[in-house]
Design a protein around this nucleic acid. Structure first.
Length: 156
DNA sequence: GCCAACGTTGGC
DNA sequence: GCCAACGTTGGC
């Protein structure tokens, strides 16, 4: 089981949005970056765990965790001319973009802010700090454990 | 709202 | 295939 960090602008899609859909899964669509796409298509598997990160706000932070319930499959929004994520180069036969489905697991009791992560001796090397623009990135088991401990939850 | 980082596009 | 121009992300 691998660990990941997914970023989202809470004004667009927040952990609350994910949480309040207990009866259904949520598509993680609209990713239009090749490196993130490769993770979605090739590496992210059912059962993997995800740190849910809120970006582009005054206090960016990891706010909760989620579980992958469906591995990479073609992103239907790329095929829909009405979607803002429409990509005319992507077709049903040769899809370019992929998405996964997530299920809400838990909120952190205490959000772990970017500031905290940057200042932590064992977290300063995270992709979040070094490659700040990558929206989907791998997390090591050690980083996962530290962030959950800082966040005040156990059992995941 | 600014701007640095950096990914993508397109002319040559 | 290089690289300048441009667009986007995301911290501040």
């Amino acid at each position: 089981m691998a660990h990941w960090l997914f970023k989202s602008e809470p004004g667009c899609f927040s952990i609350e949005d994910l949480k309040h859909r207990p009866e259904m899964t949520e598509h993680w669509d609209g990713v239009r970056n090749y490196q993130a796409r490769n993770f979605l298509r090739d590496a992210i598997k059912v059962g993997d765990r995800v740190l849910f990160y809120h970006s582009n706000i005054p206090q960016p932070a990891v706010v909760g965790i989620a579980e992958v319930v469906r591995a990479g499959y073609p992103d239907c929004t790329a095929l829909d001319p009405a979607s803002e994520h429409f990509d005319p180069k992507s077709t049903a036969q040769t899809p370019i973009w992929y998405m996964v489905d997530l299920r809400y697991l838990a909120d952190l009791k205490h959000p772990v802010t970017l500031e905290t992560i940057k200042g932590h001796p064992l977290l300063g090397g995270m992709a979040l700090v070094r490659r700040s623009r990558l929206s989907i990135q791998p997390v090591t088991p050690e980083e996962w454990g530290i962030i959950l401990a800082l966040g005040g939850i156990t059992g995941y």
